[in-house]
């Protein structure tokens, strides 16, 4: 697998994703500058967390007009794998690669903490090393992670098993008490219908090594690396 991490001027988890992909997973990894249009033959594009262009407007709203995003849209339409984390998820919904929208957290504040996630679909390129219903602990860090979609859209997500992660308690129950930001249906991450574009608010790259609080995020990267193949 060759991975590319997109660098917007305000990306700040670009270095973290690069580190995990390259040094922990062992994948050939490059940075993709936002003003460039060459994807350098990567198999996986990662939109990392951060504040793309400052995000003083709606998060990710300017990023969708950048040269690199137009190329990534084409890449995804041709079946290329795209992972959006946090601000990257916001870029994916703003650019139309994923349905729905991410609004201001219901508590109105930035929130950074470990949360429990339930894996609701382990049959994706990104989650094949987890089990359905497994509860994992991965941190969030965002002010705008409150997922919204209209009724029809939600029905479609449910029918196509597109909801991949939900916020839950330690037993896997996804109720309001364990919802950190007000997301509809406790949604933390979704995949597109075709199954090649995943967006999630939590940060798996922050818990992918033994020295961290958990190592639960490692398996997401390992899943996609195995799926695409050719690492290490």
């Amino acid at each position: 697998m060759k991975a590319g991490v997109v660098v917007f001027p305000g990306s700040n988890c670009d270095h973290d994703c690069y580190h995990v992909l390259k040094h922990v997973i062992g994948a050939e990894t490059v940075f993709l500058w936002h003003k460039d249009t060459d994807l350098q033959g990567v198999d996986l594009v990662v939109f990392p967390g951060g504040f793309s262009y400052g995000d003083y407007l709606r998060c990710g709203a300017i990023a969708k007009f950048s040269p690199i995003v137009s190329e990534v849209i084409k890449f995804a339409e041709n079946g290329g794998h795209v992972l959006g984390i946090c601000n990257g998820f916001q870029v994916l919904t703003e650019s139309g690669l994923l349905p729905g929208a991410l609004m201001r957290n219901r508590g109105l504040k930035f929130k950074c903490e470990y949360v429990n996630l339930r894996v609701d679909n382990s049959d994706t390129p990104y989650t094949n090393m987890y089990a359905d219903g497994e509860v994992i602990r991965i941190p969030i860090a965002h002010a705008d992670g409150n997922y919204y979609i209209d009724e029809e859209g939600m029905k479609e997500l449910e029918e196509n098993k597109q909801i991949v992660f939900r916020y839950c308690d330690e037993n896997g129950t996804a109720e309001d008490d364990s919802n950190p930001n007000g997301s509809l249906g406790n949604i933390a991450g979704i995949i597109n219908k075709k199954g090649n574009v995943l967006g999630m608010m939590p940060h798996p790259e922050r818990c992918a090594e033994g020295v961290m609080e958990t190592r639960d995020g490692y398996f997401l990267f390992e899943s996609i690396a195995k799926f695409i193949g050719g690492c290490k």
């Binding site: 700040n12 988890c13 270095h15 973290d16 580190h19 995990v20 967390g49 504040k109 930035f110 929130k111 950074c112 903490e113 941190p139 860090a141 940060h203 790259e205 922050r206 090594e209 020295v211 961290m212 609080e213």
Partner: peptide
């Protein structure tokens, strides 16, 4: 207080 700060970016924080 610290819930409002991103205290984990740069994957260096090994003690929360």
């Amino acid at each position: 207080v610290w819930n409002q700060y991103d205290h984990m970016v740069r994957v260096g924080t090994v003690q929360l």
